[in-house]
Design a protein around this nucleic acid. Structure first.
Lengths: 194, 194
DNA sequence: AAATTGACTTGACATTTGTCAAGACTGTAC
DNA sequence: GTACAGTCTTGACAAATGTCAAGTCAATTT
């Protein structure tokens, strides 16, 4: 069950983990099962754990005054969950993280993560790479948001992450794109005739 | 002129730079003046240098098929310029970086930056922090883009970066927010009566 | 000083997107 | 098997935003 995590660190870092290092990782993460609709983080709470998704899927979202949900991020196997701001600074989060499917998460606190980074070069390198890639991906999404129409944003998502389209309900995809479910339904309808 | 850069590394890292380290930094960066409207990076070129803004201001933007510009990022004194994707992977960029004012930049190639990171703990720590903060800031902007109206996005920007509002022309602020200059003009007009 | 350019505003109108309400359909719970 | 909740679709209409064109103003150039 930790294998996917070891593989992640090794691939991202380009290094190989020693047996000792693997043991250290296992000691610092704790594995936990989540049922669909269960929360890893709720608005107002501090993000105590970052979670590596060994299996399953989740979403991070906010809820506005009108009760509308806005999905900031999806996560599937091999991705990380957590509100970076709340996690690194231990401040209350504005977001919720909820499982979309039954999931298996590997959890770690900020302090334990810092220990691993200090002790294991592969973890340090992988983390660094992760932050950089996250930033690059975010820039792309910002660029889409300010420069494309709803339909273009949908097409781009379908192309970049086709798995999302099949795996997540349409209303969540709409929320992720920042449009209403009705608009997305109409976009998809139009697409058929093109 | 390098003082602002030294201060940046020290503040971000919480460490103090030794004299040797300062010298090493000076050797690896090169200082260059840019006139207003001059480009640091043009679409299609590879982002050879990252630039630390010692003085001045700039914008990073794309141009779509209709000739419309979309500003992904602003930069002012103490901020960095560069397309992270193009810079770290040395691939052609989709963006342009242009000075909004006469500016003084401290430039460094990717390879030289890696050398500094390896040699100077304060630079390594500051860079790590920078990536994390950039990601957090990006997440906030994504959240605004998908959940707020044009007016709310403007208000948020005015609150978070009041300096931008005074310093940059309205049409650029509009482009940054992903709205037309006319819409921003009307938003500002309405705001007066509230 | 006259001409030119760029930034901003304003009005009229078009287009996109959101909202509300209703209905079809599916899978799940009881 | 029936009821129920969730998801998606569709239509009618409202609201937000974009587009085009014209005009003002200030700064810059000639």
């Amino acid at each position: 069950m930790f294998d996917i995590l070891f593989k992640y660190f090794e691939q991202k870092s380009g290094l190989t983990l020693l047996q000792d290092e693997k043991s250290l990782i296992e000691e610092n993460f704790k594995s936990k099962r989540f049922r669909k609709k269960q929360y890893l983080l709720q608005e107002g709470d501090t993000c105590k754990y970052a979670g590596f998704i060994a299996a399953g899927a989740a979403r991070m979202f906010s809820v506005d005054e009108k009760g509308h949900e806005h999905i900031v991020r999806f996560g599937i196997e091999g991705w990380w969950l957590g509100d970076p701001e709340s996690y690194t600074q231990q401040t209350p989060s504005k977001f919720n993280i909820e499982m979309i499917e039954d999931s298996e998460l590997l959890l770690i606190t900020w302090d334990h993560f810092q220990e691993l980074i200090a002790a294991i070069p592969a973890v340090a390198a992988a983390t660094k790479d992760m932050d950089k890639q996250s930033f690059i991906a975010s820039q792309k999404r910002i660029h889409s948001a300010i420069s494309l129409t709803a339909e273009e944003r949908y097409d781009e998502l379908a192309k970049a992450y086709p798995a999302f389209i099949q795996r997540f309900p349409q209303n969540m995809i709409a929320s992720y794109l920042g449009i209403s479910p009705e608009t997305l339904s109409r976009i998809r309808k139009n697409a058929l005739s093109n």
